[in-house]
Nucleic acid binder design. Structure first.
Lengths: 244, 244
DNA sequence: CAATAGAAAATTTTCGAAAGAAATCCAATC
DNA sequence: GATTGGATTTCTTTCGAAAATTTTCTATTG
């Protein structure tokens, strides 16, 4: 029965939530852009995407529209879509905006946060540490799967810090900026062995967490430094397109 | 020839820019939501919208998707779209987020701004003053057209202040938050004669501009106070839905 | 009389084809 | 030889109908 024309079940079978094909298109396109499977700047021809994902125009266009407002896709009126290009300027803007948003969110979170909030931070930090340790033990060949797991924990830790800020907008923006900056982080992580200047990321996280739990303004400074350090490393170790 | 089936010219005839029907749908829906022509919380049935705007599913859905990521429209997977509801909490969140964004943008703008920037601010202030004066002279019946013109100048003034911040993201966010908060401002403006506690908005603008031109940190404080004052008035004079 | 299952209606979502623009190519002209 | 004009091709955008899903209604049962 599978593959027969007219077989377009929508309901999710497994654990995931994508109830519509539009959502599927969005998630897959986003993943492929962030991971670099779709090259930056490359035009996204509808026919090719239809082929690639086995979906038709409508859900694809809806997904692209959504990705456009998240700055992952660029488009001009009657000239179609393309993967948003990468550039130093964009990377820096995303980083600084992220610092602005998360600094405020962290301050508010420290003001509002309760015991559960603290517990969640400690738990997320622990999970991240375990994953990092596991990774370093099996070092050398870092599988893509591990990198994905690592990234997920990293995301969860940073999100736990600001989770109690009380502003849905700030949380949304932080999420969006996390994804945007991930485009620059990921390719840097893959071939990172080369120019790594002995950075102890785990220690930085510990420092941020400790300051956060004692409600110190230092936490905000450490967080900003953490992000700027990453940005600097990315800027240095990325091969930027000619005129950007 | 007009109206004949198959007559779907896309190219804009007049001065405007909407090159696609998707763009038309976006602009009209947005205007109708902001102005309150479409009630907050009301379901947006595709068939009804198709009727109302004379467009078909595809462009409407694309526009709704875009409006959803701008928080003007709400949607659930297979249950369709609705106008995003209004609430005290959302209004406050939008206001505080706007203050966060624009404060930073204003500081950067004061750092980067050149002569042209200053000239543009003065010009925008002047245009706003003229419009306000014209309006107060013809007071009593304030036409909707005048209100629209007034709002445009108001927007232009606030935008001129932060125009040179150098961050496309901050400018986009400011624009988005301007539109979001306009939903709360507009209905309040229409019937404002009642509870107005003798507020001199023009003076507030002048104060912000003066401080900005002399590159004083006061500008940021005045701007925040300006927005919070507006939020307070809105909160007091709005009839909020029962449980929000 | 409330609760439930099943059919009917309403609505959203998706598709494939058709219409409309832009980009490309090619020949004719200056 | 460069340039302009027009046809051809490629691609985006839009439509209307078909499929899938949710909601509503109704009859039946405990």
């Amino acid at each position: 029965m599978a593959g027969v024309a007219g077989d377009r079940r929508i309901v999710s079978e497994g654990a995931g939530e994508p109830a519509t094909l539009s959502e599927v298109a969005y998630q897959r396109l986003r993943a492929d852009i962030v991971s670099g499977a779709l090259d930056a700047g490359k035009p996204l021809r509808l026919e090719a995407l239809k082929q690639r994902y086995g979906l038709s125009f409508s859900p694809l266009r809806e997904a692209l529209m959504r990705l456009q407002s998240e700055r992952l896709v660029f488009s001009t009126a009657l000239r179609g879509f393309s993967v948003a290009p990468l550039s130093r300027a964009e990377m820096k803007d995303a980083t600084e905006t992220r610092i602005l948003i998360e600094s405020d969110a962290l301050r508010r979170s420290m003001r509002n946060g309760d015991d559960d909030w603290e517990a969640a931070i400690v738990a997320a930090f622990h999970a991240l540490s375990l994953q990092a340790e596991r990774q370093s033990r099996l070092s050398g060949e870092v599988g893509a799967v591990d990198m994905h797991a690592m990234d997920e924990r990293h995301y969860q830790f940073h999100r736990a810090l600001i989770a109690h800020c009380g502003s849905p907008r700030l949380l949304d923006l932080a999420d969006q900026l996390y994804v945007e900056t991930q485009r620059y982080r990921l390719p840097c992580l893959v071939g990172r062995v080369a120019g790594t200047p002995a950075r102890d990321v785990a220690a930085e996280h510990q420092q941020i967490m400790d300051a956060t739990l004692r409600r110190s303004e230092d936490a905000v400074r450490y967080l900003a430094e953490h992000y700027r350090r990453t940005a600097d490393i990315i800027e240095a170790s990325t091969v930027w397109p000619s005129s950007a």
